[in-house]
Amino acid sequence: MQERGDGGAREASGRRARGQLESDVLAALWAADGPLTAGQVREALPGDLAYTTVLTILSRLYDKKMLVRHREGRGYAYAPVRDEASHTAQRMRSLLDGGSDREAVLARFVSELSEQDEHVLHQLLTGHDARTGDDRPTEGA
C-alpha cells in the first residue's frame, strides 16, 4: 500500500517558495526547547524536504544573522537570535491595541473568547461530541 492519497496536499511542498521554507524553518527553531540540528529541523517540518534543502535554508538564515549556531558532532545546531530587548514586540502590540477597527487591516489568528466560549472550546478539543447548542457537560454519557 502506497501513501499516494496524501500526495494532493503534499505535492506543492516541493515547489514551495523559498520565503515560505525560511518561515517554516524559523518557526520550528523558535518553537523548539533548545538548538536543533539540520536533521531535527527536517523532522519538525511538514512534507519530505531533502536534507540538503534544510541545510541550505539554515545557512541562509544564519547569513542573515537571524540564527546562531554551535558545533554539535559533525555538524551544527541552530537557534534563533533572541531579541527580547527590541522594541518591535512593543510596537506590534500597540498596533493591535486599537479596537475593532484594526481588525480590518490586521488579520488576527484568533479573536478573544468569552468565558462560555472557553468552556465550549475545552469540550470540543477534548473529544466531546461537537453537538451544536450543547453547552452543558453531560453526565455519564
Binding site: E22, S23, L26, A27, W30, M66, P80, S86, A89, R93
Partner: peptide, 9 residues
C-alpha cells in the same frame, strides 16, 4: 526582510 517575523515575547 523575511515573510515571518517572530516577536520574542
Amino acid at each position: 526582510e523575511s515573510e515571518l517575523v517572530v516577536l520574542d515575547d
